[in-house]
Nucleic acid binder design. Sequence first.
DNA 1: AATTTTAGTATCGACACGATACTATCGAAA
DNA 2: TTTCGATAGTATCGTGTCGATACTAAAATT
Lengths: 180, 180
Amino acid sequence: MTAPLWFDLLERLAAVLDEELRRAGASAGLNASQVAVLRYLSKANQYSNTPSAVAAYFGLTKGTVSQTLLALTRGGWLRRSPDARDRRVVRLALTRRGEALIRRLAGRIAAVGVPEDLAPHLERLLRNWQQARGGLSFGLCRSCRYFLTLEEDRFQCGLTGERLLMPQPLKICREHAPAA
Amino acid sequence: MTAPLWFDLLERLAAVLDEELRRAGASAGLNASQVAVLRYLSKANQYSNTPSAVAAYFGLTKGTVSQTLLALTRGGWLRRSPDARDRRVVRLALTRRGEALIRRLAGRIAAVGVPEDLAPHLERLLRNWQQARGGLSFGLCRSCRYFLTLEEDRFQCGLTGERLLMPQPLKICREHAPAA
DNA sequence: AATTTTAGTATCGACACGATACTATCGAAA
DNA sequence: TTTCGATAGTATCGTGTCGATACTAAAATT
């Protein structure tokens, strides 16, 4: 029993990605995990910018994530604020420093020339794999089964009923459900 | 400046992969990094089963890798043996326990149904990215510029001149050079 | 023979990670 | 409305990762 070729290639890509994250954080004294968490939070929508969402995204325990968030907050990369409606919840947002770091990383990545039609293939792989594993999809809000377009530039979440303001539809949602 | 979509998808795939590795090692008391190293060594050819090759593959320092290999050796997952020709070199090989663990992981992955034409896309992405970064490719021996087929089932490395016995051509090589 | 390069180990400190135990808040049921 | 369970999060401990630095030994070069 040997693993399929796509898995071997993905492993190699993951190693390269990890090295990229490590390099991006090195000058700032951050490690790859910390940079990965900042990246996630820079893309998380209003339902997904909490410690438990981070834990679910990376498949880690709340305790582990709590530690990483503590380090990032101490370093001034992250800001924590209490949720207005549910006082158990902590909202996480990047500071200006954090955003600048993520932008620098994005700039380096954007320089990599890549075939046009790649993204759909990666999406298919991700969907199939997640379906086989039965986890959450963490897809883009806009691509969700519950995403509603009321009019031009007016959107709503069919699950919570809340209005979605603009960059939210382009972000990651922990409640994301793929189209049926 | 925002990162391209393929990078976001790859990040998510890497998180899922990491979770898979963590799960595979959990019952054996191994973490994701340790499982990743075992996976690499299960695929490394005769030029690539050494501590420095592991370090280069993952973009880590020799010291870091040395620690991980120590833990794996202590746990009986890995066997170390001196190289005959170069006495500085340590050769690494999985023990039967180590191979069994990797086989179990491969079995779970093989159950994931994936589109047929995926691998070429991943390969293109990997080549482009690595070219942009200027690192080693760690491709399959068989796909190397220096790989020679003498006759049916007789192969040779054009770089070292050595004969390559069979499963070597199917494995990863640290000296791999993509076809021009 | 002297020097440089390469392969690898040893040790330290910061942090990741899971496990366990804990607090606080929310929500539902009696 | 009290009780009870579920949920969000933190605290602490032990093992291991990781980079930095310093080191040994063998090979390659001059």
